[in-house]
């Protein structure tokens, strides 16, 4: 058990870390946008939009992430002109999968805002979109942030699935280093764990800071 194996392979660790962080940030941003849109579909006055949103969420939320990866890498090219490999495939799969959880978090936040708020907004002539963006969503933000941060933390860890699909992120880096240094595989894995914590612990801290910022008098 010699910690120097981490220091000796720092460039490899950092490259893997950077890729994991990048996957988290890019797929996280995409999932927030897509998830918020799906959540809006799910509270829409149109039944067909609500149904689409529900099917989308339930399909992606209830299938293993690995399966979503398989679909984007192997199935999608057979039925569409799109071909995704490696990093692009990982971003797509992680975005789709995570967006379903974002949608659920945002939807529950929307539902946490009293129905009277939306009724009052509609009663002064705001459209459905204006009601959501001016009245409901600003109040939903407070209750959405904690579950949303959980979703992002899960995403940071889920990026490790990309290791199985030719993306040399943190997990794949760890596996290679462990194979190259069979005597120090435990220390290598400890190093991998530490780098994940560098992403996930600040995310939790950020949640607390954001919660305090969006708090307002009621």
């Amino acid at each position: 058990m010699d910690p120097s194996v981490i220091a000796d392979n720092m460039p490899a660790f950092l490259a893997g870390f950077r890729l994991s962080l990048q996957l988290t940030l890019v797929a996280g941003a995409g999932a927030l946008v897509v998830g918020a849109l799906v959540a809006m579909l799910r509270v829409s006055p149109l039944g067909s939009l609500r149904a689409f949103g529900a099917v989308y969420t339930e399909l992606l939320r209830n299938t293993p992430l690995t399966l979503v990866f398989f679909f984007t890498v192997y199935v999608l090219p057979q039925f569409t002109p799109f071909r995704f490999f490696g990093y692009a495939a990982a971003v797509l799969a992680l975005t789709l999968y995570t967006s379903a959880f974002v949608a659920e978090a945002v939807r529950s936040g929307i539902n946490s805002v009293g129905v009277g708020q939306a009724e009052a907004a509609r009663a002064i002539g705001l459209t459905f979109g204006q009601t959501l963006t001016s009245v409901v969503l600003p109040q939903a933000v407070r209750s959405v942030i904690p579950p949303l941060i959980n979703v992002i933390i899960a995403l940071a860890k889920n990026t490790s699935v990309a290791a199985g699909f030719a993306v040399v992120e943190l997990m794949a880096t760890g596996r290679r280093l462990a194979q190259g240094n069979p005597g120090e595989s435990i220390m290598v894995l400890v190093g991998v764990a530490l780098f994940y914590l560098v992403i996930t612990i600040p995310a939790g801290q950020l949640a607390g800071a954001l919660e305090r910022r969006v708090a307002f008098a009621r």
């Binding site: 009724e119 009052a120 907004a121 009663a123 600003p138």
Partner: peptide, 11 residues
């Protein structure tokens, strides 16, 4: 419309 529970925008 004026509601029983006021429904002023809380934020």
């Amino acid at each position: 419309m004026v509601f029983q529970s006021f429904n002023l925008f809380a934020h």
